[in-house]
Write a protein that binds this DNA or RNA. Structure first.
Lengths: 146, 146
DNA sequence: ATTGGTGCAAATCCTTTGCAATAGC
DNA sequence: GCTATTGCAAAGGATTTGCACCAAT
């Protein structure tokens, strides 16, 4: 199948390879990100990990999330105004955003990202990740549902 | 110099149908948006139209862009941190973002948005627009290009 | 011991809000 | 004339920066 969620130990190794340090903050943030099935904001991460590591600062959260994205262990999703979202789901997946209530859900199903990547390559780009965001009305906000 | 592109008169009519007013600010912003081949930030719009309508305020620009998006005449693209982008290109198109220099280009080619919309519908969503953003390295930043 | 990382607080940037004056209908 | 819309200024929220202390290697 697909990747069986690499253990957080990988992060330690990855960091050491780059001459960086495996701090508790980094390990805990990645674990929390993986523990969550869905996308979270930087602030939600901060709140969530406060139980394990009280006093973690916002700059640390942002820096760590950026680092995880750079390492390819997390994805950043910009879906409209407000805070950016992060997730560490192993399988590729995309999102639907309700433009009325702001709700964000996963879009399951097969997306031809290979084709999209190929198109980008033809333009000289080296694709790294593909984000698909569908804007519309969620079941709760769609007319005729309430 | 004048606009051979679709007449802004459409906007006037659309607004009147909704009991709203066709102000010069709205007409000029839409024309400017259509005149530009690419995506622009709200602030770039403000700078650009300053020649025609000096003193246009930021709130007006944001409100107008929101309105145009709501009317389906413009699209908002969230591609990473920083300011949101807007464009009024008629044909569906998507974007590639360089994660090193931040450059944003159009991704040309056929994207199966119909399939994506259908997938969203199966989840009970009413899709409005589909955004595809590919992150990676642009030709200038890719290794081996210079 | 070294130096990368963290926390604090303030700064910065983007966007929205409140209200009086203006201009479109 | 009625009221939507504008402009001003300031607030609001998300993210980043500078610097001193601490902790991972």
């Amino acid at each position: 199948m697909d990747a069986p969620s690499p253990a957080p130990a990988d992060l330690t190794e990855l960091l050491h390879q780059r001459g960086q340090r495996a701090t508790p903050q980094r390990l805990v943030i990645l674990r929390e990100l993986r523990h969550r099935a869905h996308h979270v904001t930087a602030d939600q991460i901060r709140t969530a990990v406060a139980q394990e590591l009280p006093g973690m600062s916002a700059p640390t959260v942002y820096a760590t999330l950026d680092l995880l994205v750079e390492l390819g262990l997390a994805r950043r999703v910009d879906a409209g105004p407000g805070a950016a979202l992060y997730d560490a789901r192993a399988e590729p997946h995309h999102h639907v955003v309700c433009r009325r209530c702001g709700r964000i859900d996963d879009l399951d199903g097969d997306v031809d990202t290979a084709g999209l990547r190929h198109t980008a390559e033809r333009q000289g780009f080296v694709p790294h990740s593909v984000e698909v965001v569908i804007t519309g009305l969620c079941p709760g906000c769609a007319p005729g549902s309430g």
